[in-house]
Amino acid sequence: MTVTKKFTRESRILTPSQFQNIFSNPTRFSTQHFTVLTTPNNDQQNRLGLAIAKKRVKLAVQRNRIKRLVRESFRLNQHKLPHIDMVIMVKSGVDTLENEDISKQIYGIWRKIDRRLGKK
């Protein structure tokens, strides 16, 4: 099986029921500016949902910048993660970070997830 580094529609969590499934019984991972909720899935791929609240990040341009960075990091690292569905949420102050700092925090979350849930 070859490793694909695509971020397709199937890689996304889209519907309210999919989000609710994760919010109902999550495993939680956190950094200073991010909280990630995960739940195992039976699919052969990881799925990502983003919940970036306007209350936390006021400007749309900043919310979109954070989403782009998170999606790109997920696209490059998804093959290293166990099969999970995840929702990434932000905490206040994330919009003041540089792109590099955001990427480092997200990469740290991927490492935490891999260490704790790991491929079995």
Rank of each mutant, 00 (worst) to 15 (best):
L69H: 02
E100Y: 03
K120S: 15
S30W: 07
R12Y: 03
R65D: 00
I102D: 13
L97H: 12
I22H: 02
R63L: 00
R71P: 00
I66G: 02
K119L: 07
N46L: 12
S17I: 10
S24D: 10
T2H: 13
V70T: 01
F74T: 08
R75S: 04
D114V: 02
D85H: 03
K58V: 07
L76K: 12
L50S: 07
M1C: 08
F29W: 04
Q78W: 07
P82F: 04
H33K: 05
T38C: 15
L97I: 13
F19V: 01
N77I: 09
K67C: 03
K6R: 14
T96Q: 13
V87I: 15
K67M: 02
K55A: 03
T27P: 01
R28A: 14
A51W: 05
I52N: 09
V94K: 00
I113A: 03
R47Q: 04
R71Q: 01
A53G: 09
R115F: 12
L48K: 05
T35R: 14
V61E: 01
I113L: 05
F74K: 06
V90P: 12
I109E: 01
I84F: 11
H79C: 07
V87Q: 06
I113D: 03
K112S: 03
E10V: 15
R116V: 12
I52Q: 05
V90I: 15
V61N: 02
A60F: 10
N41I: 03
R71E: 00
K91R: 15
D85N: 07
A60Q: 09
T35S: 13
L97K: 10
N25V: 11
S11P: 06
F29K: 03
Q20R: 11
N42A: 08
L14F: 07
R68S: 06
I52M: 09
T38G: 04
Q18A: 04
V36S: 03
I88N: 09
G118V: 04
Q105D: 15
R65G: 00
T15K: 15
M86L: 06
T35D: 15
M1N: 08
